[in-house]
Nucleic acid binder design. Sequence first.
DNA 1: ACAAAAGTGTTGCACGTACACCCATGT
DNA 2: ACATGGGTGTACGTGCAACACTTTTGT
Lengths: 231, 231
Amino acid sequence: METGLPKFDSAFSIDCVIFGFDAGELKVLLIERNEDPFKDWWALPGNLVENDESIEDAATRILYELTNLRDMHMEQFHTFGEVKRHPLGRVITVAYYALIRILGHKEVKPITQYAKKTSWHPVNTLPKLGFDHNEIFETSIQKLRRRLSYQPIAFELLPEKFTLTQLQLLYEAILNKKLDKRNFRKKMISYGFLKELDEKQKGVSYRAAKLYKFDKRKYFKIFQNDMNLES
Amino acid sequence: METGLPKFDSAFSIDCVIFGFDAGELKVLLIERNEDPFKDWWALPGNLVENDESIEDAATRILYELTNLRDMHMEQFHTFGEVKRHPLGRVITVAYYALIRILGHKEVKPITQYAKKTSWHPVNTLPKLGFDHNEIFETSIQKLRRRLSYQPIAFELLPEKFTLTQLQLLYEAILNKKLDKRNFRKKMISYGFLKELDEKQKGVSYRAAKLYKFDKRKYFKIFQNDMNLES
DNA sequence: ACAAAAGTGTTGCACGTACACCCATGT
DNA sequence: ACATGGGTGTACGTGCAACACTTTTGT
C-alpha cells in the first residue's frame, strides 16, 4: 500500500493479560519467551500487529495462537508508549485483558513458537517480567477491579454453573478483600440476573451447594438503560 | 536507530478531545484542517507521534501546538486501530482528552499550519468530522462521564473561583441531565474539599453568589486511600 | 459423631431523593 | 417594585454494614 505518509522504524504490538480463576485464586497466563529480547523470561503474551488487521483482530488472533480459544471476552484497557519500553526499537503496545474459564485449560499449549511454554501464575506472586509487563499487569488489575463494580464480568471467569461461594471467592480474589457472606448473597440475588438451578454440587464431602447460572437475558433486560451510558 | 524489527508502512498518531465549558455549555475544540485528507473538514486536533517521543509527550506537544497551553490535565482513554480508519495508510491513533479553562482561550490560534483555524463547538451539535473522529468523540464523552463520578475533574474546566451554580451547570452539561439544587449543594459541601471564599461574584444584576475554590490538598487528604486504587 | 461448608434475618446507619419558599441584589 | 437567581431544611425510603447460629451432607 502506498501511504503518502512518512515511514517510521516503529511498530505496534498487542499484549494480553489473560485472567483465570482456579482453586480460589486469581491467576494470569504467562509465557516463557523463546525469542530475544528477554529470551527465557516470563512475559505477557503479545505480538506485533499485522499491517492488514485491526487491533481488535490482532488481539483475538494472538489470544488464539496462545490458547487455541476464540470468542473470549476481551477488552482494551491502555496503550503504553514510552520510547524505550522495547529494547530493540520503538514499539507502542495496546494492552488488552481477557477473561477465560480456566477449567479445561489448565495446560495451555501455545500454537506459535515464540513461547516455550505457558503457565498460570497467581496474581499476588508474579515473577519479574520482561519489558514493562509488570506495569502493564498492574494497570490491568486496577481496571479489572473498577469494571467489576459495574459490569458482570465475573461470570466469564467461572464455569457455566457455579455456587454462590465460588462467586464470592472470585470477587474477593479480584478485589483483594474479604466480603460478608450474607450481604454478598443478598445483594447478588437481589440483582435478579442469577438463575437458580435444580441442581447441586457433586463430589464434595460436605453439604452440597445449589448451583446457579448467569442469565444474560435478564441482565440486559434489567440494565438496558444503564448500558446505553456505558462504553 | 537499528531496530531489528520488520518495517511497516504505518504510523501512530494522537488525537485530542479538548473539553471546555462556557456559557453553561460543554464544548470541544475542533480544527478546520488545512491538509489532505479531509482538507477543509472539521476534525479533532491530532498529529503523528515522532519516533523519539513517548505518546504522553506527543499528546502534550500536540496540545501545545494547538492551544499554546502546557500542563493541562490530559488522560488517555482509548486507542483506535481499524485498518481503514485513515484513507492514506495504516495509522493507529491513541486518543486523549484534555480539560481546559476556556476563559481567556476563547480564541485559540494554532501555532502549526495543519489547522486553518480552531473553534469551540457545543458537544450536542457537532458537525460531521473527518476520519473516525465522531466515534472518538463519543467514546471520550462516555469516559468523561464515568470519570466525573469518581475523580474531581470538573474543577479543571472552571475558573479558579466559581459559584456552586456554575459547578452544578457543569455537572449537568457533562451528565446531560438536570440535578436538584439543594441536594447537589449539600453533597458537594459534604465532601469537604470546597473552600468557601470571602468573596462574591461581581457584575451580575441579581444577588451575588459566594465564590468557592477547589482545595486540592484537602481532596488528597480525604481520598488518599481511594486514590491508591485508581489508575 | 464429627468435620466442613451451606444457608439464613434483623437492626442501625448513611446516603440519596423529593420537594417549595424566602432572601439579597441590581436596575 | 420587580426580576433574577441565591440560598436553605425536612421527611422518607433505599441500600449497605455488622453480626452468629442452625442445617445438611459425607466420611
